[in-house]
Design a binder for these strands. Sequence first.
DNA 1: CTTTTGGCGCAACTCGATTGCAAAGATTAT
DNA 2: ATAATCTTTGCAATCGAGTTGCGCCAAAAG
Lengths: 136, 136
Amino acid sequence: MQTIEEILKIKKVNNTAIRTVVLRHLLSQEKAQSLKDIENVLVHTDRSSIFRTLKTFEKNKVIHSIEDGSGMLKYAVCAKGCNCDPKDLHYHFYCNNCNKTFCLFDIPVQNIELPDNFKIQQANMVVKGLCNNCNK
Amino acid sequence: MQTIEEILKIKKVNNTAIRTVVLRHLLSQEKAQSLKDIENVLVHTDRSSIFRTLKTFEKNKVIHSIEDGSGMLKYAVCAKGCNCDPKDLHYHFYCNNCNKTFCLFDIPVQNIELPDNFKIQQANMVVKGLCNNCNK
DNA sequence: CTTTTGGCGCAACTCGATTGCAAAGATTAT
DNA sequence: ATAATCTTTGCAATCGAGTTGCGCCAAAAG
Ligand SMILES: [Mn+2]
Ligand SMILES: [Mn+2]
Ligand SMILES: [Zn+2]
Ligand SMILES: [Zn+2]
């Protein structure tokens, strides 16, 4: 497991107090976090600072964002070695009951046969339903 | 091909002038339409009326919505027989260059092997990249 | 010490989505 | 035909996530 300092160094993001605590929080959560989620934890930190931290992280591929249809972008830490390329593509699961969103890193994604001359660059794949906790 | 009247009848949506013209517009477009797209066409119809028309259509499975990351929800007419169930799942393609979003009805989606006890109900699958027109 | 650069907090703003309400239209009951 | 009822529409207001301008401050460079 890499430390927060190592991750930021590898991704060429300057380390600051806010960045450390935001990344630590994201790493501690199994579910992807929205800006509001993080605001609710870092109550003394300004929203725009958290926002810019997330954008910096995303630009430098420390994290990636997920549009799960909740109306709020969610953010999750990239897997080690991830470069946000098509090869790093993975599904996400959004639970309609508990509203948890998370990466399904372990489920292989089929090679998608696009029509002739189409080129994939990224993807946003969200499966919605009931998670194991809510599917009783 | 079904007529607009037939579609609305099958989906149990009362026919009105606005609903007819909105559905006709959606059917005439190959790319999924945003509320704003439709506003720009139906310049004499109020936004909220179009909005509610779309919500009514979506609830009754005349259309489905797609979150393509552009910040605006897109809407596309469901295929004949579609019930917006997992079996009706299909990919969408968003062109990063021309910003066109559309359904890839012809590309099969593999059965996604979710973790134990997870249940799929819907999905939002968007592949992003360059369409055949823009991939030069 | 002085200058430069990057990060932060605050406040304001944008814009897509959504809603309350009353008028208009359509349908059904009397 | 008229009254009561339900549905649809238009208008204006509001919500809220996301975003930005700007000045301050602290660390790094000169
Ligand atoms: Mn992910
Ligand atoms: Mn579709
Ligand atoms: Zn759940
Ligand atoms: Zn294109």
